[in-house]
């Protein structure tokens, strides 16, 4: 008899022993800790809350003074659309946001790459960035007005500075995390410095840069309203502030909803960008 036969013989006796007692399955301990996407749940939550809110307002549980009904906010929004004001406000805001955020992000990526690549830039700029990042840019708004004028300059500058710092920090962190063996590989094949930066470091840092973009875009929208507090005739922020000062809460809610939809659209766009640029992650 070979040893294998002996082993299977041993297993057979083991089995008969087990069946004389009760058989029970191994308790399952895996699973969890990994949320999977479920479609439609998100919109359903939104709809349910709005429906509850509307029902509360109509039945009088929620006083109109405390919170206007969603339908009233929607009416205010419809009026905005019909009077043609929506586009005016939106285009003014979008222009500031796009210019400020694009410049801030581009500069942020450039400076972040510099900090990630050059010792001198790291030694000189990193403390500066760390010192300036936590300052609320809103606090600097009066200074920006003095420096860049009461017009578009100060508004764009606020958004620019707001999106610049998170991008710098995300970018240099991303560069630090690029696999050094890939850089060494590039060097060993004699790739030029610029090729290594463009083809190895930048794509390697891209996941971090894009999550930095997500954060800086949200900060940009937050700062948009703050920037439009001073001397803006048009803009979603200006509209909200005007509504607030008149206690026109329905208009205020309509404005806030516009901002929130703007945020959703931006985050969707960045999601598309991520899916396109980071397709290799699978």
């Amino acid at each position: 008899m070979t040893s294998l036969d002996q082993m299977s013989g041993g297993r057979a006796t083991g089995e008969s022993e087990a069946s004389s007692e009760t058989l029970r399955p191994v308790p399952y301990r895996g699973g969890g800790f990994r949320p999977v996407p479920i479609r439609l749940i998100g919109p359903l939550v939104f709809l349910a809350i709005i429906a509850l809110w509307e029902a509360g307002s109509r039945s009088g549980v929620i006083s109109n003074l405390v919170l206007p009904a969603p339908s009233e906010a929607f009416e205010a929004f419809s009026y905005l659309v019909e009077s043609g004001q929506l586009w005016r406000h939106l285009s003014a805001s979008l222009q500031r946001l796009v210019i400020g955020w694009t410049l801030g992000t581009a500069l942020g990526i450039a400076v972040g790459l510099g900090i990630g690549l050059f010792s001198l830039a790291r030694a000189g700029l990193l403390p500066l960035v760390s010192a300036l990042f936590p300052i609320p840019k809103i606090a600097l708004l009066p200074l920006f007005v003095i420096w860049f004028g009461i017009g578009e300059g100060s508004k764009v500058a606020t958004i620019l500075f707001g999106s610049f710092f998170p991008t710098v920090i995300a970018t240099y962190g991303g560069v630090d995390n690029v696999d050094r063996t890939l850089v060494r590989m590039g060097q060993s094949f004699g790739l030029s410095w610029w090729s290594i930066v463009r083809k190895i470091i930048l794509p390697g840092a891209m996941p971090a840069i894009l999550s930095g973009c997500r954060i800086s875009a949200s900060i940009g929208i937050i700062l948009l309203v703050a920037a439009e507090m001073i001397g803006a005739e048009y803009g979603v922020g200006a509209y909200i502030l005007m509504a607030g000062s008149l206690f026109a809460t329905d208009q205020l809610l309509a404005g806030v909803a516009i901002l929130s939809v703007l945020g959703l659209i931006v985050s969707w766009l960045i999601g598309r960008l991520e899916r396109w640029l980071l397709a290799w992650r699978g």
Partner: peptide
């Protein structure tokens, strides 16, 4: 590239 490496962990660009 006269002197050329082959790395233990392949060093392929994942993208």
């Amino acid at each position: 590239n006269p002197l050329t490496y082959v790395f233990q962990d392949f060093a392929l660009l994942p993208w």
